[in-house]
């Protein structure tokens, strides 16, 4: 188990595996997202209360779910990076932050565009919206720290610490709608028991959810490869790849 783990964590092995898997992630993401978006926009019936405005859900919920999942992934990488000082974990940590930030921003913007016509306001300071905004600031903090500190290893350590401290915000975002009164609705899909959604509406949503995870996988592999190339500059495997133009 440990030898397998160490081999996977070795930069040349990971780089090669990423090259092999990334295209499949890309294909899966394209297929699932195309199916989900077309189904959501064209085939899903309109909602009994929100009519066509509810179609924002096919972007909003996957983006929001991803914003939390990427944070957990980033924090796991941070744990490994801070304790075991594994280079690959450092690369994953700093690569996950911009992806997470972009999807957190997408969740916030689509939420605002949904809130205005349905609630009557773009923004309110309820527990869900406020904690999701803090999530964006945490991502921004990790990105900023990484850019501000010259030495990549020291930067990764600082980013890792911030990412670990911020982990406390993740359950708050998720459970905010249960713990406190909020304007935001409770969970439709990501909850215990039956989803509170008609099957014809839910099916494209599941496709979009799965699709964004594959998309995240694709982008994360490519970004992690970039970080590995930079940190491993001058090593034999990078030189070899540069010479054969196989990068």
């Amino acid at each position: 188990m440990w030898t397998w783990f160490h081999r996977l964590a070795s930069p040349p092995t990971f780089y090669r595996l990423a090259d092999r898997f990334a295209p499949w992630f890309g294909i899966a993401a394209t297929g699932l997202l195309a199916y989900g978006i077309v189904g959501g926009l064209f085939f899903a019936p309109a909602d009994y209360q929100q009519s066509d405005a509810f179609r924002i859900i096919y972007i909003h919920v996957p983006a929001a779910a991803l914003s939390l999942s990427i944070y957990m992934l980033m924090a796991s990488a941070a744990l490994v990076a801070v304790i075991w000082r594994i280079k690959l974990a450092e690369c994953v940590l700093v690569s996950a932050a911009p992806i997470g930030a972009s999807f957190t921003a997408l969740a916030l913007v689509t939420g605002m565009l949904w809130g205005k016509p349905m609630w009557g306001a773009y923004w309110v300071w309820d527990a869900r919206l406020t904690s999701e905004l803090i999530l964006l600031f945490l991502y921004a903090g990790v990105i900023g720290l990484n850019q501000a500190i010259e030495d990549p290893r020291a930067a990764a350590r600082a980013c890792g610490l911030l990412a670990l401290i911020g982990v406390i915000n993740v359950p708050i975002v998720h459970y905010s709608v249960e713990w406190w009164n909020s304007l935001h609705q409770g969970s439709t899909i990501l909850k215990m028991g039956k989803p509170s959604m008609n099957a014809d509406m839910a099916q494209p949503l599941y496709a979009c959810l799965l699709g964004v995870y594959f998309f995240m996988g694709y982008v994360l592999l490519r970004r992690t490869q970039n970080e590995l190339l930079l940190r491993e500059r001058g090593t034999a495997w990078v030189k070899e790849r540069l010479e054969s133009s196989n990068v």
């Binding site: 309109a46 009994y48 929100q50 509810f54 409770g186 959604m197």
Partner: peptide, 10 residues
Amino acid sequence: LAKHDENYMP
């Protein structure tokens, strides 16, 4: 402001 619930259906 309107606070809709988590139920979606045609």
